[in-house]
């Protein structure tokens, strides 16, 4: 049942060749609205990576030891979402206690993450593709890093775009989407390197 893929190959594949954002279109909403400056892009990228790694582990455990044995697979959407929301909430409180400075940097992004499709998407991919625990962790972490890389790159491009003469109708989201399109094309270039799935 478990696919025979080296977890490390999966890790690199999820960063480059099947980037969660550029190949699977997940996490677009916050991606477009936050990618205006480097600093918040960085904060959000870090937050997404941490939450992805944590929730995917929890979701894997819940899936394997609760949902499958009890034959409640059809409840997975609700359960996954609850796990994600709860993790984000707890993480927010812990960060607030432990490091107020980090909270200032990440705090505002955490609630946004609950509705980030990338988090739920990774949980669902992990379930559909039957990954084992190690594969899940590396896949999730890789996806988070890939998302982070993509949002940083886009924020950097957006900075240059400010000075470019863009047609009135294309300003804003239009040009952002076309930029993402070019980035996606560039990432397709990696696809000869590894092929997974």
């Amino acid at each position: 049942m478990v696919p025979d893929i080296n977890p490390f190959v999966l890790f690199f594949a999820s960063i480059f060749t099947s980037n969660i954002l550029l190949a699977n279109f997940l996490g677009m909403c916050s991606f477009i609205s936050i990618s205006k400056d480097m600093k918040s892009a960085n904060g959000l990228g870090l937050a997404v990576t941490v939450v992805l790694a944590l929730t995917s582990m929890l979701n894997w455990v819940v899936l394997k030891y609760v949902l499958v044995p009890l034959n409640l697979l059809y409840l997975r959407y609700i359960i996954f979402i609850i796990v994600i929301a709860a993790t984000v909430q707890v993480l927010e409180m812990v960060i607030d206690r432990v490091s107020p400075a980090l909270y200032m940097a990440l705090g505002i992004f955490l609630p946004l993450i609950t509705v980030n499709c990338a988090i739920l998407g990774v949980a669902l991919f992990m379930q559909i593709r039957n990954y084992n625990f190690i594969q899940t962790v590396l896949f999730a972490t890789g996806s988070g890093l890939g998302w982070w890389l993509a949002i940083l790159a886009l924020a950097a491009i957006q900075k240059k775009l400010l000075k470019a003469p863009v047609p009135a109708g294309l300003k804003g989201p239009g040009i952002t989407l076309i930029t993402i399109g070019f980035m996606a094309m560039a990432f397709i270039g990696f696809s000869g390197m590894l092929s997974v799935q």
């Binding site: 109708g169 294309l170 239009g174 989407l177 076309i178 993402i180 397709i188």
Partner: peptide
């Protein structure tokens, strides 16, 4: 492939 979706949506918005 993926890029075309971005290009088409971008153009559509334009």
């Amino acid at each position: 492939m993926a890029p075309s979706a971005f290009f088409l949506l971008g153009t559509f918005i334009w």
